[in-house]
Amino acid sequence: MAKLKLKGHLINRDWCKGCGICVHFCPRKVLELDEFDKVVAVRPQDCVCCKLCELRCPDLAIEVQTEQD
């Protein structure tokens, strides 16, 4: 399978409840919570598009968009 290329992290700030699951389990520490306890992608260049954040998000608030999608 070809290596996935990141287009961007689509974050729905209205749906994010700031549980921090995606932040903690990101293997590359791409995500962080901001001052409003909402997730932001602070190091998108490190993202390997494993999509674990997207799969684990209980609020369906994050989507990893790739060039291949």
Binding site: K17, G20, I21, L55, R56, P58, D59, L60, A61
Partner: peptide
């Protein structure tokens, strides 16, 4: 597959039920 008009859902932050919905 979801009814977006009811989101964000009522489950607490970090509730695993949302992950089941996701799966």
């Amino acid at each position: 597959y979801i009814r977006e008009r009811f989101f964000p859902h009522i489950w607490c932050p970090g509730c695993g039920h949302g992950i089941v919905l996701n799966g």
